[in-house]
Design a protein around this nucleic acid. Structure first.
Lengths: 158, 158
DNA sequence: TCAAAAATCACTCTAAAGTATGAGGGCATT
DNA sequence: AATGCCCTCATACTTTAGAGTGATTTTTGA
């Protein structure tokens, strides 16, 4: 270890040593000036005790890593597994179902009639009928209820 | 605050005070015995400084309360939906859905048409229509797709 | 840029779904 | 014996769903 790195690494200790020397000097000086006191010595000792106790406390607070008591509380959260819905893109691609058709399928599964779906998607009833017809063909089903059942089974919808 | 509780609450501080007194006494005694030293005073001061610094450090280490850091770990518990299906009898009773109606509902959810359901249950199409109508009334829905959606939501069917 | 795919709308018809009402038989409770 | 509920069947009617065909406009990917 080089000398500069030694200094930088022990900065606090050096500072402590220097401050100790300064304090001793200061006390010596005080001793000479206020020797008049009756119980000067006891007061002197007491002052030193207090100062160095404080120094010890300060040092410890500065140098020790803050004590952290970590309490880990496990909180159980129940999650319905169908929350973690993951669209089965393979199946979608395999069946050739388009985005719009998937939208229609979703609304269908929620129990909406073709008319309601048309309103919601801002298109005509005819369009929805076309979509549903195409869907049934692609999904190889005959009714919307079947389509919904199959779609849920294949994770095409939640 | 009563006297005993005061003592118990400030145990450490009292101990500190007493130890301070003892130390002072000890040092006084040492002073009388080893006055012969040339630099006795400086050593004396140094000793006090070291002792009380150590005391401060020890005190701090003992007295500082650890910061309590509470970490709440959210443990996700997935409820597998294909677990054993449990019919929601409360809801069935509440809605006043009969056994037969539940049967019809089940087949409806599987995508069967009224005609197919009639075949499967060996009754006429009229009967199934009556059942479905009553079901829709009881369940407060307008279409079979809605009925199926609601039935699944309320665990009336798997 | 050009062709394929997707999205849109329209019309006709048939099939199924849903509404309303009534009625008869079985079964359990009161 | 009377009442209420469930299951059954029926008729008549309305609404919605679905099949079939065709066409226009966007979008998109090669």
């Amino acid at each position: 270890m080089t000398l500069p790195t030694f200094f930088s690494k022990n900065k606090v200790i050096l500072a402590y040593g220097i401050s100790l020397a300064v304090l001793l000097f200061l006390l010596k000086w005080l001793e000479l000036r206020f020797i008049i006191f009756d119980h000067a010595f006891e007061i002197y000792i007491g002052a030193i005790a207090i100062i160095f106790t404080a120094l010890g406390i300060w040092l410890t607070l500065k140098l020790t890593k803050p004590k952290v008591k970590t309490i880990i509380v496990e909180k159980e959260i129940y999650i319905n597994s169908n929350d973690a819905f993951c669209l089965n893109e393979k199946e979608v691609a395999k069946l050739g179902v388009s985005k719009r058709e998937l939208e229609v399928l979703q609304l269908m599964a929620q129990g909406f009639s073709n008319g309601e779906i048309a309103e919601r998607l801002f298109v005509s009833l005819h369009t929805i009928k076309t979509h549903t017809s195409n869907l049934f063909e692609k999904m190889d089903v005959k009714r919307r209820t079947q389509a919904v059942e199959k779609a849920k089974r294949l994770s095409l919808i939640a």
